[in-house]
Nucleic acid binder design. Structure first.
Lengths: 173, 173
DNA sequence: CCTGAAACGGACTGCTGAGTCCGCTTACGG
DNA sequence: CCGTAAGCGGACTCAGCAGTCCGTTTCAGG
């Protein structure tokens, strides 16, 4: 890809905007047709840039996932592993729940964009908190994220912070 | 519906058996074709008895939901509302998680077969426990079930009891 | 301005799954 | 054992969605 023609660049931008909006509204179920229509292009145009729907989704959520990785790395560099865990969860939840639809996409994509990296970092944050006796350790580090995610996604619109508190209370050692 | 011809009754039974198995295995995503094939009938036969897929699902899960209603009513007649709540949750969870696929169907169906009734009973169980100061009361009774359900469904196969304990610990006053 | 490569977009394919229809089959009462 | 209504089942319609193809349009450099 040397350079993008001006109209192509414009359309690419429109597609990404429309896709972001659509995925935010409908999660992974948003259809390519719907996105193309909203962007004012034919859906062939979408597929030229993103060979599959998942590729488009990766492009849309990459920024989010990367941001979460940064937060995790900050948590890992803290010298209070317990507090770091709770701060980390709150920050990531805030980010995820600002656009629940997109977060469903992150879950849907699993390891693909940088999900594996994020998982690994998150698990290390948990493991450190457990070693510091700030968290119950009968759950494995890998199990903590699904539990928290499930609680967040199950909450009615305004209530996710409360649901999160309940689960975090249950997780404390 | 006066009487059912012998072959019809036989087929109806086969369909219900196959549907139960299929829904248990795949949740609400099981297809009518798949069920009809497993039952050894054409899918037209399925639709004659159950005009829509949901109707078939209702028939399959009705027994489950009714059973849960009974458990809820027992809990309501206890004179220790706190303990009754925890016993109730454990029993319902045991029932639901014995066939997670069917439970997904129950959730999918929402109010239809007797879901509204079950919700109401469950909420009363919660409310009584809250009044007895056995449960934190910053959640509304209607919010408790979704939270617990989410935790159960998010658990890896063998771990749902642990996930349940975590959430229940978080819910205690 | 003029041309060719890049980009476009919509018609098309292929798939899956719900729900309908109707000609054929079969149970069962007389 | 026979007539008929109940029952059967698969071919069919309809809809939605991912992904492909190709004739047409448009950008941009010479």
């Amino acid at each position: 890809m040397v350079e993008l023609r001006a109209d192509a660049r414009r359309n690419l931008e429109r597609v990404l905007d429309a896709a972001t909006e659509a995925f935010a509204a409908s999660g992974p179920d948003a259809s390519i047709d719907e996105i193309a229509r909203a962007a004012g292009v034919g859906h062939g145009t979408v597929f030229r840039r993103f060979p599959t729907k998942d590729d488009l989704m990766y492009a849309v959520i990459e920024r989010h996932v990367a941001q979460m990785c940064v937060i995790a790395e900050e948590a890992l560099s803290s010298d209070d592993p317990g507090q770091a865990f709770f701060d980390f969860v709150h920050q990531v939840a805030e980010l995820a729940m600002s656009t629940p639809g997109l977060h469903k996409c992150v879950v849907h994509c699993g390891e693909k964009p940088r999900g594996a990296e994020l998982d690994e970092l998150g698990q290390e944050v948990v493991a450190r908190a457990q070693r510091a006796r700030a968290l119950r350790s009968d759950l494995t580090p890998a199990e903590v994220a699904p539990l928290i995610r499930a609680a967040l996604m199950a909450a009615p619109p305004g209530q996710w912070r409360l649901f999160l508190e309940v689960v975090l209370d249950g997780l404390r050692a």
